[in-house]
């Protein structure tokens, strides 16, 4: 998918430069570029003849959009009621400790973005962690490391221990 990035004007043309397609345009830019850069938002605002602030209002409203580059892998930790009582916050803490970031942030090397989610609808296997769409049920603090290993290899310079 990320092999060939469509540039922003192409995406806008694809949606016929219509105001009503703003969300679709932003979604496409997000998918292609992994985030909405200030420049791309300015281009969108100009092309759709909208005030920049309105475009930003939409871009900051939805969780699907990110104004900072997202990592290659997205790690969602469920904070829904069922996962919460089964220790979701502790698992999130473990992720925070290992990745050295807070929810909503991306690791320095741009590999993993950590996010929380309200409920994923599979409370039976809670606490749930989803990495790149792959569900890991019955998560425990011990298994956090194993889950991360599968996707994330910290570069030697980053890890303070070695």
């Amino acid at each position: 998918m990320a092999d060939k990035k469509q540039d922003v004007p192409t995406i806008i043309r694809k949606h016929k430069s219509l105001k009503k397609n703003l969300v679709a345009i932003l979604l496409d830019i997000q998918a292609q570029h992994n985030y909405l850069s200030p420049e791309s938002l300015r281009v969108v605002a100009d092309a759709l003849r909208m005030p920049l602030i309105d475009v930003l209002g939409v871009a900051t409203f939805y969780r699907a959009f990110s104004l900072t580059p997202r990592g290659e892998h997205t790690c969602l930790v469920c904070m829904g009621t069922a996962c919460h009582v089964r220790g979701g916050p502790k698992i999130l803490e473990e992720f925070e400790r290992r990745l050295e970031i807070e929810p909503g942030q991306t690791t320095k090397d741009g590999q993993v973005t950590l996010e929380t989610v309200a409920c994923l609808g599979c409370c039976a296997i809670g606490p749930v962690v989803v990495v790149d769409g792959e569900y890991h049920g019955h998560a425990t603090i011990r298994r956090v490391g194993k889950i991360l290993e599968k996707y994330y290899k910290p570069s030697p310079s980053d890890s303070p221990a070695s």
Binding site: P51, I53, D54, L56, G57, T60, F61
Partner: peptide, 9 residues
């Protein structure tokens, strides 16, 4: 002017 507006949610 439309210089300011609501952001986030």
């Amino acid at each position: 002017a439309k210089a300011i507006g609501f952001q986030n949610r």
